[in-house]
Design a protein around this nucleic acid. Sequence first.
DNA 1: TGATATGTTATCTT
DNA 2: CAAGATAACATATC
Length: 293
Amino acid sequence: MPELPEVETLRRELEKAVKGKTIKSAQVKWPKMVLPKTPAEFQKKTKNKKITDISRRAKVLIIALNDGNFLIIHLKLTGQLIFRNKKSEIRNQKIAIGRGSQKGGVVGLPNKYTHVIFEFTDGSHLYFNDLRKFGWVRLVSKVEVDKLLREFGVEPLTKDFTLAKFKIILKRYPNRKIKQILMDPSLISGIGNIYADESCFCAKILPTRPVKSLKPLEIKKLFLCIPKILKFAIAKKGTSADDYVQLDGQPGDMVPYLKVYGRKGEKCKGCRGVVEKIKLNGRGTHFCRVCQK
DNA sequence: TGATATGTTATCTT
DNA sequence: CAAGATAACATATC
């Protein structure tokens, strides 16, 4: 799933690929995922707009246009953004769909999961794919984008994320399980299931631990682990455990470095234990009960 | 065939 | 009433 490191990887690649380019046309194939609602209106309002900046807040990509509006994109669980320079490459280059990076299931572009296509004036294309159609693309004003972004919690890779702030957040929810805090986008933004599990492993804390049971040293350890894990994952260009791919359609390189996520029944990388998987607040949760206490 | 996967939000329950 | 739990969204895979 695209979480902070995956979205940040895409942001950096988009900056290189499409910043400064002008949208020639935007084709909407699945209007339910797009605002404005009608493809004609979406096309009209994006036509001839130049991309001036690409930023990110939580798991949302924010593409600034030269008319003062913004294209904001959320990939949710199975979204992909893929850029292609020339038409000839479209037929040749394959991309992975649905665990495809692990198992095959590779297809060309556009394909049945392509729901929005941006064409730029230089002939290049940006494809928005989403197998399960949870993701969205919205054209919004500055006021709307500011409102949306205000609702997210602290960004864990900025200087706003301090130990003091982390402790304040934890103090508000003494009875919650620690993983629940990590996964709550209104408290800390950008961490999803993969990096919540990995952060808990890094801090040697069981994800099921009630917040109030955490000792100051454990809180500090977790506080340090979160940015450490996220930065490492960005350096590896993200985790392609399911559908996520980089902007060029290739999988990220993070999977071999995961310690617990997706490793149920496999040997722990830190000890002789075996990675277990349980359900926690409705989410699959991985841990090693020998390494994590 | 049915259970599972999951980010976010809406809605139901305690 | 607030906090917590679950359903919903869509679709493929186990």
